[in-house]
Amino acid sequence: MTVTIKDVAKLAGVSPSTVSRVIADSSRISEKTKIKVREAMQQLGYHPNMIARSLASQSTQTIGLVAPSSTDLVFQNPFFPTVLRGISEGAHTKQYSIHMTTGKTEKEIYDDVVKMVQGRRVDGVILLYSKVEDRVLSYLRERNFPFVVIGKPFKHVEEITHIDNDNFRAAKDVTEHLLRLGHERVAFVGGNLNFVVTVDRVLGYEKALRNAGISLRNEYVIHEEFLREGGQEAVNALLSLEDPPTALVVSDDLMALGVLNSLNELGIQVPKDISVVSFNNVMLAEMSRPPLTSVDINIFDLGFEAARNLMQMIENPKEPVKRVIIPYNLVKRSSCGPVESAIVEST
């Protein structure tokens, strides 16, 4: 026998309209009543008909997620499962579901987003990245469609709600950490320069060097994809220099793992011969050999806050634009040490 909303209302001792408001998590209903209704729903095994609710309210209760164009980047890099977990838990607080783009190219992703918006398949969109040039972001702004960016927008910063870390300051801090250990030949291994996070981090790195009176060396700045292979290619390029670096600031833990593997194959010891510091502090940072010194950017919180702020925008179109800065902290492990002369002698 099918359990109806009237059955729930009868058991809870409230009206059917009150049950509907509890399902919608209406602020007009007291927490005490919500608990009573939800207990009745659980006791009866009642599950709301989300399709019927969507037809009645013209709301899909669905958040669209837009990932970078490279599917390899999404499925290989631990950053994305963690941020998705944060979004999922945030969405669950208001019973929103998630719909993710499946396109492989930038054009396919853009077409997916157009279908999401024009087909009213989602109520709002979260961009899991921020690019210097991005058709998707421009389209969402033109349509005045609710969206939130994880990362700092390159343009119109004051007009777009975004959830970010202070990546400029974080990169400056980790570079200064290496400088305090005596390293002057510090290289930077970053990702694609079309991502704003890469731009901010390389600028923070450069600022720390300038403040220390150290000349910038173009050959010490390498840009690869945020993948393990990118780190391996960066090591080969940097260690082939006549005057190789004694320390590396690497923009991502997965890339740093490739760096460590390549250094090990070359017989270069970390941190005795070269120090390595990275970003994200995902599980592999602690499990690597040696364990990586890494900036914990609180990835889960980035996702959770993105979902929370988007739902506020969906439910209140007059919600003000926000810039939410998630704190970070440097987790010191075994991959950094005082400058040594071994790498100089080995070359």
Rank of each mutant, 00 (worst) to 15 (best):
Thr82Asp: 11
Pro16Asp: 12
Ala56Glu: 09
Gly124Gln: 07
Asp123Leu: 04
Arg141Thr: 11
Met1Glu: 14
Asn194Glu: 15
Gln232Glu: 13
Asp273Glu: 10
Val235Cys: 03
Asp253Gln: 09
Leu263Ser: 11
Ser346Leu: 14
Glu206Trp: 07
Asp252Trp: 06
Arg323Asp: 06
Leu260Pro: 07
Asp296Ser: 13
Ser97Asp: 07
Glu219Leu: 04
Asp273Tyr: 00
His47Phe: 13
Val136Ala: 03
Asn144Cys: 08
Phe188Glu: 03
Glu224Phe: 01
Phe226Tyr: 15
Thr2Gly: 00
Ser97Arg: 10
Pro16Cys: 12
Gln58Trp: 00
Glu133Phe: 12
Ser138Tyr: 02
Ser69Asp: 13
Pro81Gly: 14
Leu248Pro: 13
Ile343Asp: 10
Asn194Ser: 09
Gln118Ala: 11
Lys6Asp: 02
Gln58Met: 14
Asn264Gln: 14
Arg289Trp: 06
Gly103Glu: 14
Ser97Cys: 00
Lys272Ile: 03
Val202Glu: 06
Arg217Leu: 06
His156Met: 08
Asp273Ala: 05
Arg210Asn: 09
Pro290Trp: 09
Pro244Gly: 01
Val114Leu: 09
Ile51Gly: 04
Glu265Gln: 08
Phe279Gln: 03
Pro245Tyr: 01
Tyr328Gly: 05
Asp72Ser: 12
Ser57Ala: 14
Asn165Phe: 07
Ala91Val: 13
Val331Ile: 15
Gly119Phe: 10
Gly64Ala: 12
Val189Trp: 09
Val157Lys: 10
Asn329Arg: 15
Leu238Cys: 08
Glu315Leu: 09
Ile5Ser: 09
Lys34Trp: 10
Ile214Phe: 05
Arg308Ala: 05
Thr101Ser: 11
Lys131Tyr: 01
Thr2Phe: 00
Phe279Thr: 05
Ile51Asp: 06
Glu159Phe: 08
Ser20His: 12
Lys318Trp: 01
Ile63Asn: 01
Asn298Gly: 01
Thr102Met: 15
Val339Glu: 08
Phe304Tyr: 15
Asp166Cys: 12
Met283Ser: 08
Ala67Gln: 05
Asp252Thr: 07
Leu203Thr: 01
Arg323Met: 07
Gln118Ile: 08
Phe79Arg: 11
Leu241Val: 04
Glu224Val: 06
Asp111Ile: 03
Arg169Ser: 11
Ser288Tyr: 03
Gly182Thr: 04
Leu254Phe: 05
Thr60Met: 09
Lys10Asn: 09
His92Gly: 14
Val276Gln: 03
Asp7Phe: 03
Lys172Tyr: 06
Pro146Arg: 03
Leu73His: 00
Gln118Leu: 12
His183Pro: 06
Gln118Pro: 05
Val197Met: 01
Thr246Phe: 02
Gly204Ala: 02
Glu305Cys: 10
Leu330Trp: 15
Phe80Leu: 11
Arg228Met: 15
Ser17Gln: 15
Arg53Ser: 00
Ile98Thr: 13
Thr93Met: 12
Lys155His: 14
Asn77Gln: 05
Pro245Glu: 02
Leu310Phe: 07
Ala285Lys: 05
Leu127Asn: 00
Val19Met: 14
Val66Cys: 02
